[in-house]
Design a protein around this nucleic acid. Structure first.
Lengths: 337, 337
DNA sequence: CTGAAAGCGCTAACAG
DNA sequence: CTGTTAGCGCTTTCAG
């Protein structure tokens, strides 16, 4: 059995393909009666429209792309959930692209989007993505783009973020309130704006409390877990931190591992607070105090913005900025209350 | 600046579109010189081919679909990683569809695939998917499908699974070796083959060790966390289980929550083993003994199989079955060694 | 209310 | 080695 096309329906019903097409899209120029006949036959023959023919003609694909560094991370997984919930409601399809923190991969992926493959893009950039990413600036001119979480400040585009600087300030202050005097910040990137905001909040908290900022205050960790582990363990031994702010989920668990290896007690020897959406945070040993980002809502907000732009081309997508607050959940890896 | 098409290149170079097309696909019938000229101009004008025109013509989209119940689950997240790694290597695009355990959504999604939107499908069915899913049987005839993890036994198609019955047998035996005599199995579905296999392995372990199988031995939990929590807590109070096998990741953490609420000690009061790929399992309190599935490898294997079928239509995809073993990682939520 | 015709951008015979 | 032609399946003027 061959694939049913609009033409087959037309022949069977002795109508033109134009009429069928209009009937299927419920056009007002078609009589109720013909619509019924068309719909009935379409159902009977199990007609499924060819999306590529339609996309080619209409120059729109009903498809959006989500570009993220990683799926096995509760923030991104939840964000996808948020995105997907609105995409599914609108009948859109979702292409997922993983960059694995590689700027080159990101570039290649973005370049492809100039083809019209997708109607819009939601992206959270890699830790390597530099300040002046030519590809991104270009892309934004050609297709609606919304950045979420990991934005690119140099590019003018819609942004959904959390209150990173604030959150880091509060996290750090929380450690200080718990008695920490030698705190380290674990950062995942030197260039990511989000990382820099967190570092800034961290620094401000230190100075606000008359604590010194040294060369050892900020630790830049790579994307490689083994290297990170080494870095962490040597730093932990040399510096004798009494508090640590982990700015990513992976780094938070890396700290647990390092402390286990060095027989350091949390929170006795080191207090730990992590930016994380781990559902298991409360069951960890000790339970992890977290800055938890509204991942689902951020995804949802980003997608909602994108669909607004897709609906009306006059919507000033570029100017949209939303900051969705994160919340600190105090548990047993820190001492203050 | 309009989108660059093959025809523009043709006009600029005084060649036919056919020649351009062939040159771009590096056809042997085109001279090196023309190829160079074409490639040069294409690069200069930043030509990006329109995928939908190509798909329409070639009747293949270089796109595959992944249909899963959920992303915020480490098994599925890792599986996506595995799938994506091979898709990216082959230059394929990956559409993700979430069913949220709804059979109706699954049906709607699968129906769309009859349109030729994707060249192949990787699927892990919902807990609701019944034994005789008309849509699936139909789909398998029209487009290459590989089931992974949650397969549908009634449908003849390629399958990637783990050794579920065995794993459950071993998990249960492990609890028995640790002194458990009243063990409960937490199941997520009555119809899922994977659930039934796990239940079977569980039962066999019980009878092999002369332990009775009662009505309370298997607990069917819904997809709703609140309801599950209630069910669990009342069962835990009424039955006084001394051991629990959680057959999904969500159920494993649900047990931790329930025990916390009831002030039950793990493993003192109840020993717990969970089917889970949680990277934080070792940091939980107590650390969780797991049956850990080769999620990444299963995704990779499934994708690899699919691409073999896409490459050669004579490849007998239907007959492919792979069972990738899981491993039990003994930690402190159980007593045996 | 329905139909004829053109064409989206690309590819694949088939000629030359 | 290059070009001509036809057409993938659908949508959209524009006529009637």
């Amino acid at each position: 059995m061959e694939n049913v096309t609009i033409r087959m329906l037309a022949e069977r019903l002795q109508l033109s393909t134009a009429t069928i097409s209009k009937a299927l899209s419920n056009s007002h120029e078609i009589s109720e009666e013909t619509k019924q006949r068309v719909l009935a036959l379409a159902a009977e023959l199990n007609y499924v429209p060819n999306p590529y023919a339609s996309s080619l003609r209409k120059k729109s694909s009903h498809t959006i792309a989500v570009v993220i560094p990683e799926v096995a991370d509760s923030f991104f997984a939840e964000a996808i959930n948020g995105i997907e919930s609105v995409a599914q409601a609108k009948g859109y399809h979702v292409l997922i692209y993983l960059t694995h923190e590689s700027f080159l991969k990101e570039q290649a992926i973005l370049k492809d989007f100039q083809s019209g493959r997708v109607d819009g893009v939601l992206i959270s950039v890699t830790t390597e993505t530099s300040a002046a990413p030519h590809g991104l600036a270009q892309l934004v001119k050609e297709v609606p783009v919304v950045f979420f979480d990991r934005i690119c400040e140099e590019v003018t585009a819609a942004r959904i973020t959390t209150d990173d600087a604030n959150a880091a300030y509060n996290a750090t202050s929380h450690l200080i309130a718990g008695g920490c005097r030698h705190i380290g910040l674990l950062s995942a990137s030197r260039q990511l704006s989000i990382s820099n905001h967190r570092a800034k909040g961290f620094q401000q908290a230190l100075t606000a409390h008359q604590l010194p900022l040294t060369a050892a205050s900020v630790l830049y960790c790579s994307n490689d877990p083994v290297a990170t582990q080494e870095l962490l363990q040597t730093a932990l031994q040399q510096e004798h931190y009494d508090g640590l702010v982990a700015t990513t989920e992976k780094l938070a668990t890396a700290v647990y591992l390092a402390c286990e290896a060095l027989s350091l007690n949390i929170p006795g020897d080191v207090q730990v607070i992590g930016f994380s959406n781990l559902s298991t945070a409360r069951f960890l040993h000790p339970s992890l105090t977290t800055v938890s980002q509204p991942a689902f809502d951020m995804g949802k907000a980003a997608a909602t913005l994108l669909f607004k732009a897709l609906k009306s081309s006059s919507f000033p997508l570029d100017e949209q900025q939303q900051v969705i607050p994160s919340s600190m959940i105090i548990r047993n890896s820190t001492k203050a209350h």
